[in-house]
Nucleic acid binder design. Structure first.
Lengths: 153, 153
DNA sequence: GTAGGAGCTGGAGTCGGCTCTAGGTCAACC
DNA sequence: GGTTGACCTAGAGCCGACTCCAGCTCCTAC
């Protein structure tokens, strides 16, 4: 743990973050880094462990749906240093709320999917039993190829 | 409940699904509907309640991250009628797994975000106490503007 | 001294999923 | 009979987030 790595190449950072070198350059260009990435010989990027730590935070935030502009905003605040902690907190709380909402929505979706899986399992287990009435709930059912009641005929 | 709606215009369907008319036409073009959308006078689309029901399923599946091609595949299977229930089940199970995974990932992300929110709350509550040591965990911390240990100097 | 590999830049391309535009039909109302 | 409003088609455009390309510079090793 906590290997003292003093100066990582873009390739090394790509390897240990799972991001591509393209993405690393792209993120830099998008202002996602807290401090400008240092340059070494021949203008090559030199990353610190702090950069990697920050990237790992970014990866989590991205994975939870935070858009790059918000990430940049957060990086801006951190870069500006002390005094804007309320704003950072607000940003994080807002994101927290969005993620919570998203999880709620996903849980609902999962309910339907689970239900449908159950319907098909029953249907296959028991050589299709009640493949009509019971299945025609608002969102639950074994998906019939559309009976087309059409013009009330 | 269960209003007997025999023939809905695209505008009505848009209204009651929350999808835009653009999206409805787009979905049709993408083969997302189980049966071809009927046409009425002057070639206008006429939707049935079944179509709306199906769209509501689609909305759930999309909201849980199912890509349009998968949705089309599912619609294809339903359209083909009986005999491919195993395949539909497989598709649903696969999606179920992906959604579950996604929820797990989101929960992890939420842990970090919750932790960070807590850190900032403490920091603001108590006029920044231990703003250094305790915060420097792999992914947990109050985000310092990078101390740049750099070349081990 | 040259081949290979990693890195650099600016800019173009891709992909998924919409979203909009242009130009037109049609029915209803004033 | 002119306007409005909802609808039609084909196709272009947009957005976010990468991803790739061309053409270049280095360094290292043979």
């Amino acid at each position: 743990m906590a290997v003292v790595t003093a100066g990582l190449s873009i390739g090394q950072v790509a390897e240990r973050t799972g991001l591509s070198v393209h993405t690393l350059r792209f993120y830099e260009q998008q202002g996602v880094f807290v401090s400008p990435v240092r340059r070494g010989a021949a203008g090559r990027r030199v990353y610190s462990q702090d950069d990697v730590d920050w990237l790992n935070v970014c990866i989590i935030l991205r994975a939870s749906g935070m858009p790059l502009p918000a990430l940049r905003r957060y990086a801006d605040l951190v870069r500006d240093g002390e005094g804007n902690e309320e704003e950072r907190l607000a940003l994080l709380r807002e994101h927290h709320g969005r993620v919570t909402d998203q999880m709620g929505r996903l849980a609902q979706c999962l309910d339907l999917i689970t239900f449908k899986v159950g319907v098909y399992e029953d249907l296959l287990d028991q050589g299709r039993p009640a493949a009509g009435p019971d299945l025609r709930r608002p969102l639950g059912g074994g998906d019939v190829p559309a009976s087309r009641p059409g013009t009330s005929a």
